[in-house]
Amino acid sequence: MNALMFDAISRSSLALEARLEFLRLLRTPSFAIPALVFPVMFYLLFGVLLAKPGASVQVAHYLMATYCVFGVMAPGLFGFGVSVASERDKGLLALRRALPMPPLNYVGGKLAMAMLFAVIIFAMLALAGALLGGVRLPPSQWLQLGLVMAFGVLPFCALGLLVGSFANGQAAPAIVNVIYLPMALLSGLWFPLKLLPAAFQSLAPVWPAWHLAQLGLMSIDQPSSGTLFGHLAYLAVFTGLIGYFAAKRLQREP
């Protein structure tokens, strides 16, 4: 583009955009309540209250990582997918494009929003795990898990952006839910995969949520499958490819 793409105006504008995008969603109960409350609620139910007494501390560790992944999927899928679809529908995207909005603002502001929500969801689960589930980790592992989740939201942002780039505002929530809930189940986020039929277990490496869950488990020394490099490479390629197609589609003329 041109030299104005990331000048001082663009930088301060991006910071404001991110803050307002976060506020906007925080004040939207249909987004904020499920995104912030459900992961902790389900974790406390299945990871702490209903865990078998003998294995409870182990379960609390394991499921804390996988429920973090379940949690960070939401700001990516809903914060991007549903928002972009309805903003396209209602003409807000066209207005933003017509105004001199710096080109990185739209996606950049939403990315920052999603990462902030991811960190908050991680912090809530970490508190629940440490205070109620007996989770004990060295500080370095807490930090690693937090970083995995903060950046782990990105593949779901790309996927949400793709949904938002073709679905209309009415259909997007349904489409996102059809991706969100089955993927969480089939990636072993709610309970370990070995409780599912073998066919579903062998399918797991298709899902980005499964790879992110393995990274989360690795970061806190819980049993996991695959290699660090394999998971990182899968997630990077997934994010890049899906994000590229989504951006291409969004740039198309309406």
């Binding site: 307002l20 506020l23 906007r24 004040r27 939207t28 309805s86 903003e87 529908d89 209602k90 003409g91 807000l92 066209a94 207005l95 017509a98 105004l99 001199p100």
Partner: peptide, 14 residues
């Protein structure tokens, strides 16, 4: 430039 389009759909919660 400044722009006022027919449908703006500004964010309701801001």
């Amino acid at each position: 430039i400044g722009v006022m389009l027919q449908s703006a759909g500004l964010p309701d919660t801001l």
